[in-house]
Design a protein around this nucleic acid. Structure first.
Length: 438
RNA sequence: GGCCUCGUGGCGGAGUGGUGACGUAACGGACUGCAAAUCCGUGAACCCGGGUUCGAUUCCCGGCGAGGCCUCCA
């Protein structure tokens, strides 16, 4: 049985055929660390984590290398650090730590390598130098620019021609550019911005070059899968391809290009101005991380996803039902679940298959669900008081004092606590549990 | 304006050229002092108009609607 993946480059589903089955290599664009990651940032992290788990299953854990970078040099980072009056390093370290804590709660495995852009400046400078030597780039006014017309086939990934792009361009063209489409590889840094010495003076890298350098350093000049959000197709991934292929003289950078769809919140585009900007951190105050993970995987990764409260409630209920019998002990993909995932990571189908399993718990661990469904809001509840009140209610019930029993239950509801009665199947004794009401 | 996705029951969401998964919600029943939880069961959908076909939700064309990209946003 083979794994099929949709390839943005060919706009088709294709059988996955690694360059070296003994070493499957995947690169995913990671976060720019200047602020809390939002729930949209979590989508590629979760989706490609599941793909990573699948690949480890198919090819063996030791035969898969997964690289997800951290972008720690960027103008947004510089601006934010200045705003807060802290050093760039302090900001990036704090944000990176927060990112790691957030995604760990989502059941995401650490990648094989997590390179930082600032550790790869020398590699970037090498690539830029090569591009200049080969006539694909030029220095102008302290900048180095990639000359887009020098590359045949530019635009293949995003499916657009140069003519179209020039016609549709709505930005002013910097005067030092030879062609309107040329993009920055290196730009000069004034004293107050981070900078590195280079053949073109003190400066900092452009946006796209870091991924070309980091993927080559850890995965080689050609590798199997490159992933990220759909918004990165153009210009980011298009330009990565241009840089890497022209510098390394290769026909292909990555064989398969995968892009996850966008996320909306309650039917609207997520934006700070609309006030519906949600961070992973905020969501984790209200929901177990695994609920967020399931909610993300209920929609196929290429479809747009509408992130809603209702959806979270459904996901929480589903997960609670699956784990009612305890944690997953199988730690393997059930065959039907695996078959669904092999079809371009069809997670909605996989989840439907999981509902059909005799023991619904099998496959959960393999999919990244451990069964830690602790409600984060419960930590704010005075447990001793709740337990005392439950004891008083049971006493009232034993005395058939329904008025008092209901009074206590209502009082708990007013506190946001929902009681659930059940009977011990063996002794017939009443067992009362509680949860925080949604 | 150019290019590209998508439109399935109340909601989420697979799939298919020939009696339309699954989840959740709703409704009915069991259980319960009454609820909640749990268990059992039921009904409910393929945007519109053409075309191809014996037959289309599925293929083609057009329309309408939603979303994305068009230089630094996953």
């Amino acid at each position: 049985m083979s794994l099929t993946l949709y390839n943005t480059l060919t706009r088709r589903k294709e059988a996955f055929d690694p360059i070296d089955p003994a070493h499957v290599r995947m690169y995913v664009c990671g976060p720019t660390v200047y602020d809390f990651a939002h729930i949209g940032n979590a989508r590629p992290v979760i989706v490609f984590d599941l793909l990573y788990r699948m690949l480890r299953h198919e090819y063996g854990a030791e035969h898969v290398t997964y690289v997800r970078n951290i972008t720690d040099v960027d103008d947004k980072i510089s601006a934010r650090a200045a705003e807060e009056g802290i050093s760039i390093r302090k900001l990036t370290e704090r944000t990176t730590a927060q990112f790691h804590a957030d995604i760990a709660a989502l059941g995401v495995l650490p990648p094989s390598h997590e390179p930082r852009a600032t550790e790869h400046i020398a590699g970037m400078i090498d690539i830029i130098s090569t591009l200049i030597e080969r006539g694909h780039a030029y220095a102008a006014e302290g900048h180095v620019l990639f000359h887009v017309p020098s590359m045949k086939g530019y635009g293949k990934l995003s499916g657009r021609s140069l003519d179209e792009m020039v016609a549709g361009a709505r930005v002013e063209v910097a005067p030092y550019k030879k062609d309107a489409m040329d993009f920055v590889l290196w730009k000069p840094s004034p004293a107050d911005l981070p900078g590195w010495e280079s053949p073109w003076g003190r400066g900092r890298p452009g946006w796209h070059i870091e991924c070309s350098a980091m993927s080559a350093a850890h995965l080689g000049e050609r590798f199997d899968i490159h992933g990220g959000g759909i918004d990165l197709i153009f210009p980011h991934h298009e330009n990565e391809i241009a840089q890497s292929r022209c510098a390394f003289g290769t026909d292909v950078m990555a064989t398969v290009w995968m892009h996850n769809g966008f996320l909306q919140v309650e039917g609207q585009k997520m934006s700070k101005s609309l006030g519906n900007f949600i961070t992973i951190h905020e969501l984790l105050a209200d929901w177990p991380g695994e609920v967020l993970r399931l909610n993300m995987l209920r929609t196929h990764y290429r479809q747009p996803i509408d992130w809603t409260l209702k959806g979270l409630e459904e996901s929480a209920k589903m997960l609670g039902g699956w784990f009612a019998g305890g944690p997953d002990v199988a730690a393997e993909f059930a065959p039907d679940v695996l078959a669904a995932l092999r079809d371009d990571l069809n997670t909605p189908q996989a989840i439907a298959e999981m509902h059909q399993l005799a023991d619904a718990r099998s496959s959960l661990a393999a999919m990244g669900f451990k069964g830690d469904l602790t409600d984060p809001r419960a930590s704010k509840v005075d447990r001793a008081q709740v337990e005392t009140m439950i004891g008083q209610r049971i006493a009232a019930r034993d005395a058939r004092n329904w008025a008092e029993s209901d009074r206590i239950r209502d009082a708990l509801v007013a506190m946001g606590i929902q009681l659930k009665d059940s009977k011990d199947p063996r002794t017939g004794e009443l067992v009362t549990t509680w949860e925080v009401k949604r």
